[in-house]
Design a protein around this nucleic acid. Structure first.
Lengths: 234, 234
DNA sequence: CCCCTCGATTGCGATCCGTCAATGCGTCAG
DNA sequence: CTGACGCATTGACGGATCGCAATCGAGGGG
């Protein structure tokens, strides 16, 4: 029997944030190591597999999450059951910030590629806030980053033909690595990100492959970014 | 000759925030009146007319803005010249928050309905921050509200048929007033909000009018919200 | 008072996209 | 090994949307 709902993740306290290898780029950047070591046992680090979820829409928000490795998708649902991926959360990103305002989570946060995630209880953030105004700045930065991303999705991925949208998505996904490589996504997820059907996403990807703009290598896409930009700009 | 670019607004310092009639619901809610009166001359209140802009995309961010009355649209542009409205800013909302992080503005902020707007220089916010952590909370709340709005636009207004999108937009716009009234929007703006063409927006609106679901009264839309919800849910 | 411009509306044809369905492939459990 | 299942791909078809153009009406300027 296969689990349709992956097993509940057990969070175990093992993280020492003052030793975190990502401290420079992470939420707690700029915070005194002395402060951090005081809360080390409250923060859990967890390896999570594709399909598991960090939290569910509507759940009371008791923690925020930092992604150390991997990729997490934020999903919202339409009344008719359709789903829409509204954002991707990747290394050094934070999600679930609404918990800090006492609000329930606004999305399902589902692991898209196997990940390592830190879970930071809301009260820990509150305690740190009191002693470190620097943390406010970091939080605001994360919020703004998420907002900027959301706006870009609206303009870039929510406008134009299906072919343009797929091209723009691939450009975004292959952006970080300069070599035009990006991890694989299912056609269903691509459709949910772009507001088109799975079939349309499949057709466009297959078409780009036939045109030589896109290829699959060792479980990754390889993109001809110049050609994609041509298509994206119409 | 008609001005295509509305005249530059002159900001003049006239606001006394400690006497502000909206203090309870505004960014400075919860801040000591004594603190507020110290910065009253740094904050300007300005009446602005449709078509004027608060700021432009790419400009260095030196102030944030609170809308007291009216409505402002945030616009982003595609490489091909197309434009997309990514958010609406209305009474008690704040926009231009990216300025607090030293970033340039990410949108054109254009007055959609005649407005009264307060301009708050970034350094004023910085000074207040130091003495009032309560302000951080308010700022985070605004950021989260913008983010939540952006996500809702992605899922509700970026998915489904043109008819569904128009119905959902009208439901959102007529939401605040329980009487189903909402201010008019041009078809061009509706299209830019929904990611459809002006003509499609026009066709859907005209169609809804003919169906008796929508009517224009004294420069406003009157919506049959029940019927719209029926259409929105498919 | 007339002309001009802008926005809304509508028609029409071409194209795109969604829907339904069939097929093939790979994985996993038994 | 075999069957079940999920996912990608492809085809066919019809309806939806786009792009272009023409018309109409309101409002401002000359």
């Amino acid at each position: 029997m296969k689990l349709t709902q992956p097993a509940m993740t057990e969070w175990c306290a093992t993280a020492d944030c003052s030793l975190c290898t990502m401290r420079a780029s992470v939420l707690f950047a700029g915070i005194e190591p002395a402060l951090l070591s005081r809360i080390q046992h409250a923060i859990d680090e967890q390896r999570m597999l594709r399909g598991e979820s960090l939290y569910h829409m509507g759940d009371p928000g008791r923690a925020i999450f930092t992604v150390r490795e991997g990729l997490v998708k934020l999903v919202q649902y339409l009344p008719d059951g359709g789903e829409r991926i509204v954002r991707l959360v990747r290394s050094t990103d934070v999600t679930g910030l609404e918990a800090l305002l006492g609000q329930p989570y606004q999305h399902d946060a589902i692991v898209e590629q196997d990940s390592v995630v830190c879970r930071i209880p809301v009260d820990v953030v509150r305690r740190l806030e009191l002693e470190s105004p620097q943390l406010y700045r970091e939080l605001m930065r994360r919020w703004q980053q998420a907002l900027s991303e959301a706006d870009a999705w609206l303009t870039e991925l929510g406008t134009g033909s299906a072919r343009q949208r797929v091209a723009r998505l691939l450009l975004r996904l292959s952006n970080e690595a300069g070599d035009g490589l990006c991890n694989l996504f299912s056609r269903k997820d691509m459709g949910a990100m772009l507001g088109i059907t799975t079939e349309s996403a499949s057709r466009m990807v297959a078409e780009l492959k036939r045109a030589g703009v896109l290829s699959e290598q060792a479980g990754r896409f390889h993109c001809d970014r110049a050609a994609l930009e041509q298509i994206a700009a119409e």
